[in-house]
Amino acid sequence: MMYSVNHGLWWTIFLASLLLAPLLFGIINKVKAFFGGRCGPRLLQLYYDMFKLSRKAGIFSRTSSGVLQLAPIVSLLATVMAMLFIPGGLFRSPLAFGGDVIFFCYLLGLSRMLTILAAMDTGSSFAGMGASREAHFSVLAEAVLFAIVVFLAIVARSICLSDLLSPLSLVTPGISVPAVLLVAGAFFIIILVENCRLPFDDPETHLELTMIHEAMILDYAGPELAMIHYTASLKLWSLCAVLALLLLPQRVGGALTGVLAYLALIVAFAVGIGVVESIMARYRFLKVPHLLVGSLAAVLTAVLLLLFF
């Protein structure tokens, strides 16, 4: 199944992913509830939450100087813009250009930077703690992400996200399977780090001292909080989508099957995250860099395998 250029279908898929993204958190929560023997919140709970929040009036800290108000908007827009470069299912992004993968990574970085600044803008010590940890982990995550991009660039001989993720490029006979597995594993770790999921950050903790992402957004309420939730779900969706495209099997029948397989894989990753969160405890903060450097080593090993074998 080669890539096809169909802008209409691409936009449809893009809009669908904007709509479906918050569903992922519902799935994760359902999986965790299943493991915990609970009934759990409804699948569409995040939609209800966001709807309720978006109709409220905002409330901002007296300390803040505007960055707090600006950050959710910039984060949301940057994430949406980053999503524009992801090929939807099997269709090339209409906005694809050479080097858009760098732009993609840096837009996610922009979103992160604004969240950090907003956290520091509140003057809260908890927010500062969260921001400091986020800045720390993101340095390593960025390095791993770019190592993965290098791997893909060598395979696809291009630095355009739509070429890098072309379904033909990775799961092909010429490329050693362990290399692909290593890269996919490292990317899954990156998904967990970037979305502040469990072995790195506990999204459900009630203790501010152990939070990362939650500590940074302590001071948000109303429409801003809705935007932040939405941004988080979009980010999770887009990274899962990238991994799904990496692993999409070569032979998927027609366009419809391809798109369905793509969506099924994304849902499967959400379930995977739910399982990981159910069976793992949060790492000590000191341990996190080791894991990230380890995944960097894994990706570099994959590059070596790719180049030499």
Binding site: S176, P178, L181, G294, A298
Partner: peptide
């Protein structure tokens, strides 16, 4: 074989 070897290598890194 390659997978086994890579797991072996990874275990040394870990």
């Amino acid at each position: 074989p390659a997978i086994i070897l890579v797991v072996f290598l990874l275990s040394s890194i870990v």
